[in-house]
Simulated scan of single mutants.
Amino acid sequence: MAGNRSYQQRDEEQLRYQELNQHLKEGKFSPIYLLYGSENYLKRSYLRLFREKFGGKDGMNYSYFEGNADLDTLISALDTMPFFAEKRLVVWKDSELLRRTAPERLCAYLERLPDTSCLMLIEEAADKRNRLYKLVEKKGFVCELAEQDVRMLSGWAARYLMKAGKKVRSSTMERLIERSGRSMDRLSGELEKLIAYTGEREIVEDEDVGQICTANVEDRVFDMITELSLGNTERAMRHYSDLLTLQEAPMKILALLRRSFNQLLLTKECVRQGMARNDAAKYIGVSPWAVPKLTEQAKHYTMESLQGYLSRCLFYDEGIKNGNLRDRMAVELLLTS
């Protein structure tokens, strides 16, 4: 069931991306946009594309706000008539109003937003119960730019390499993504290193990936979970400390822990049903060559313990979003209690 819901979610996300791209292609824009999620590369890319449609970063029809912006100044920007154009774009990044109560004045204003302005909210996370979220959903367009699946990343990375005159086998691409992780920022950096390393050579080989691409945060999270399964809490905390030193966000680490525990739960279900490797890979949502590694790690957990970890991940995530728990402390509690 979990696997099927996951596929449905991915299909729905792709439809939203297609609709967003159609807005850009046709130049027919919603009054309000909310772009949120963990994939910063996509958020930056869509911001750039929208900005270009409204005359560019230095254009007369573009205003940018970040963080705790002054509401009077924001409304003034939205009320300003566009210069020789139908609309102007106002972007507000990281307002955090999608996770807490938005000012009544702002919500009332957005109900009657002038049709000469387009407001784009760009956030890390959003609570779907939030009044502002529901308002944007009713009057505008909401799109979650979450971590992408392997299929989408493979196609994107192959096109990235093709523009540089490079080709890659599907098995090598899977290895690259498994090693680099699913962050498009990180993956683009690894692709640039591979392009430079291979020089005039056309084909990117497995050996190039092994030589150039460094271990990623997901590998370290995998190590954390392994240490937890063996009762080595101190070592798990050491991995966590290393990730914080590398300036990885605790919320991202918590999300990866939750995903990893869910993968292990799905892996145990695959083992119980006696699934073949390729079928198991599709069900879990990983590359086929990652299945044996997950199967080995899953042996150290019971179904009940994994369900317990998942419940706690959700509980701590809710606590962070409600402001009742600091993100760093949430991960520490998950690892030590």
Rank of each mutant, 00 (worst) to 15 (best):
Gln18Arg: 15
Glu19Met: 06
Phe29Cys: 07
Pro31Phe: 12
Tyr33Ser: 08
Tyr46Asn: 08
Leu47Gly: 02
Phe54Pro: 07
Asn61Phe: 10
Ala69Thr: 02
Leu71Cys: 03
Thr73Leu: 15
Ser76Gly: 15
Asp79Val: 01
Met81Thr: 12
Phe83His: 12
Arg88Leu: 11
Trp92Thr: 06
Ser95Asn: 01
Arg99Gly: 04
Glu104Asp: 14
Leu106Ser: 07
Leu106His: 03
Cys107Val: 15
Cys107Ser: 14
Cys107Gly: 04
Cys107Met: 15
Met120Val: 14
Ala126Cys: 07
Leu132Glu: 00
Leu135Trp: 00
Lys138Arg: 15
Phe141Ser: 11
Cys143Phe: 00
Leu153Gly: 03
Trp156Tyr: 09
Ala158Tyr: 03
Ala158Glu: 15
Arg159Val: 06
Tyr160Ser: 01
Val168Gln: 06
Val168His: 04
Ser170Asp: 14
Thr172Pro: 09
Arg179Trp: 07
Ser183Leu: 12
Leu187Gly: 11
Glu190Gln: 11
Leu191Glu: 09
Lys193Gly: 10
Ile195Phe: 08
Glu200Gly: 05
Glu205Val: 03
Glu205Gly: 02
Asp219Pro: 01
Val221Leu: 10
Asp223Met: 11
Ile225Phe: 08
Ala236Asp: 11
His239Glu: 14
Ser241Asn: 13
Asp242Asn: 07
Leu246Asn: 05
Leu246Glu: 13
Gln247Leu: 11
Met251Cys: 08
Lys252Asp: 00
Arg258Glu: 11
Arg258Cys: 01
Asn262Asp: 00
Gln263Thr: 05
Glu269Ile: 12
Cys270Asp: 05
Ala276Ile: 11
Ala280His: 11
Ile284Met: 10
Pro288His: 11
Ala290Arg: 15
Met303Ser: 10
Met303Tyr: 15
Met303Cys: 09
Gln307Tyr: 13
Gly308Met: 02
Cys313Leu: 07
Phe315Lys: 14
Tyr316Ala: 07
Asp317Leu: 09
Leu325Val: 08
Leu325Thr: 10
Val331Trp: 12
Thr336Asn: 09
